[in-house]
Design a protein around this nucleic acid. Structure first.
Lengths: 141, 141
DNA sequence: CCTTAAATCGGATTTGTTCTGATTTGATTT
DNA sequence: AAATCAAATCAGAACAAATCCGATTTAAGG
């Protein structure tokens, strides 16, 4: 997803344009990486030093609801990245536990796994591979 | 895993036997279901009405470290169940988002997925299917 | 028993997140 | 361009899950 697309989605859904929202989206678009609310706060401080964390959290929820951001939960913290599954085909990620960097995995195990027990109505699934990316292995940062 | 096994693991690793620990394990062994720390607290209140949540949390961590409990995170909360992957072969679960009930899935997608990008050192993975179990669908409780 | 390290208690603290009420701002209407 | 109004933001309070802390109790081995 691109920044312009995301802004269009906001507009189409009757949300107002604000520089803060655009900047939040830009920050997420800048890296193929899961960011925490805190990460976003840090990065946005340069442009909007007084932005309150309420605004960050509220906008994040809006973005997630609109499918602009994808969410996961690592180490008891919500982490977010610009939606990419929306673009093309549904897929999953390898995620670096150090820095949040992601890389796409081809395909989805739901297609190939044997059927789910029929006493469950499936509403979703999560497949994530965890690891350490090359950068984080070498630098041990 | 059985209660006796779990107690043996504790002993083998130099942890003391306490009735509270045994009861916590019994509670988890009683259901094929993920429980939150709060759930465990509630259930243990019958036998040990004054148990402090510090003890519950600390023991849970110990159990997870020793492989007695398996952990996942749902709705921003840690959830725990008696380890079962340890018993036989590695596998995954369907989890009811209402009540935490689980059912085993055959196999693991890691076996059949194409290779992970080689700029990641894989340290783990998570594959969970979410849904609503028959009971929770019908009762809408 | 005695001793000692481990376990527990109870409450304070921390952390991530959400809520609240007052204020500001973007978009629309006059 | 000014007025209007709902939406967005602010600042801090409130919240929930989890952890930390010093004091007390207890299990296990000598």
């Amino acid at each position: 997803m691109k920044v312009e697309e995301a802004l269009q989605i906001l507009k189409d859904n009757g949300f107002k344009y604000t520089g803060k929202r655009e900047e939040m989206i830009r920050i997420c678009a800048a890296e193929k990486r899961y960011l925490s609310a805190k990460d976003i706060m840090e990065r946005i401080k340069e442009l909007y030093p007084t932005l309150s964390f309420d605004t960050v959290y509220r906008n994040i929820s809006t973005f997630v609801e609109l499918g602009i951001l994808e969410e996961t939960e690592l180490d008891g913290e919500g982490k977010f990245r610009l939606a990419c599954s929306a673009d093309g085909h549904h897929h999953h990620h390898v995620i670096c536990m150090e820095c949040g960097k992601t890389s796409s995995l081809p395909g989805c195990p739901m297609n190939i796994m044997a059927a789910v027990p029929d006493d469950f109505e499936v509403t979703g699934h999560k497949f994530e591979v965890y690891g350490t990316c090359k950068d984080c292995v070498s630098h041990t940062n």
